[in-house]
């Protein structure tokens, strides 16, 4: 990368832009973290102050069960975890198979099926919320985590297919060719040859799917708002905001559900990013 050399003025300009960008991106998050560690009374008295002592009681209050004087976020987190992990398993199994076929196999109707999958992905989701709600409530699943699981699998399959297909296309086909020459069957090929080299892609896709399910709010609201036991973590935090819950506790809850996804995302960041942006490079 040479081209035009940056002048000192350009360099200073870049430093300013980077500083502003970091402040803009991280400022609100840092504010949330700081506030979650201050006592509520102090926040209302002096909104601009910094924490005088490290006070983590808001986190404990948020997590504890209602019976112990808390707000039950611990249970909401478990609900979220169950639904999100279930979504990951189902969605990944479906998508590894589908994406491999889309990337490598020639079958009749392949162009059509690929086209349908791409179209689905650009489809406005809110339109489908109405019929999905009707179907699932007709089946009696709208007041259960199972209904939510079904919706999340459906919501994540298109994007997971897209990412997995990108990863498969980036893998060299020569290993598979050699395995087939040696007489591998399709299932042997998938389990022994393809999956081991596709592990980074599978993990990255799984993490991305997990994030979508973990962060989802709309369907949780639509299905479960009447059933406090079944609230997911995002729904719980949003609903508690309407009650008389101290804002420091709400922020503590928000930070607590954020930290795991941020950490996991950054561990797999390179793979997730490359899976997402492939195709934009040309």
């Amino acid at each position: 990368m040479s081209g035009v050399r940056p002048t000192p003025a350009a360099r200073a300009g870049r430093a300013v832009v980077v500083a502003i960008a970091l402040l803009w991106s991280l400022g609100p998050v840092a504010y949330g973290v700081v506030l979650s560690m201050r006592p509520y009374a102090e926040v209302t008295r002096d909104p601009l102050g910094l924490p005088t002592a490290l006070d983590l009681s808001a986190f404990a209050t948020a997590m504890r069960d209602e019976a112990d004087g808390g707000f039950g976020l611990g249970r909401f987190v478990l609900n979220s975890l169950g639904v999100a992990l279930g979504t990951v398993v189902l969605s990944i199994v479906v998508c590894v198979l589908g994406a491999y076929a889309a990337a490598r196999l020639r079958y009749r109707g392949r162009a059509v099926t690929n086209g349908i999958i791409l179209a689905v992905y650009l489809f406005p989701g809110i339109v489908l919320a109405v019929p999905k709600f009707v179907i699932l409530s007709r089946l009696g699943l709208t007041s259960s985590l199972v209904g939510l699981l079904i919706v999340y699998v459906a919501a994540t399959v298109p994007v997971a297919l897209y990412m997995m297909r990108n990863f498969f296309l980036a893998l060299p086909a020569s290993v598979e060719e050699a395995a087939i020459m040696d007489g591998c069957t399709l299932s042997q090929l998938l389990v022994r040859v393809v999956l081991p080299i596709a592990v980074p892609g599978v993990v990255a896709t799984a993490i991305y799917v997990f994030m979508i399910a973990w962060n989802e709010y709309f369907y949780a609201l639509l299905f479960l708002v009447q059933h406090r036991d079944l609230w997911t973590a995002p729904l719980g935090i949003a609903q508690l905001g309407d009650f008389q819950v101290p804002v420091t506790v709400l922020l503590a809850g928000s930070i607590a559900v954020t930290v795991p996804v941020v950490i996991v995302f950054f561990l797999a960041q390179r793979y997730i990013v490359s899976g997402l942006v492939q195709g934009a490079e040309r």
């Binding site: 994406a99 689905v120 489809f123 019929p131």
Partner: peptide
């Protein structure tokens, strides 16, 4: 051809049941 359909059918089933039917 058969393998392709076998592998892609779960994806199509999900898309069909949860996207095309609702639409």
């Amino acid at each position: 051809n058969r393998s392709g359909w076998l592998l892609v059918s779960p994806s199509l089933a999900v898309v069909g049941l949860v996207v095309l039917l609702p639409f």
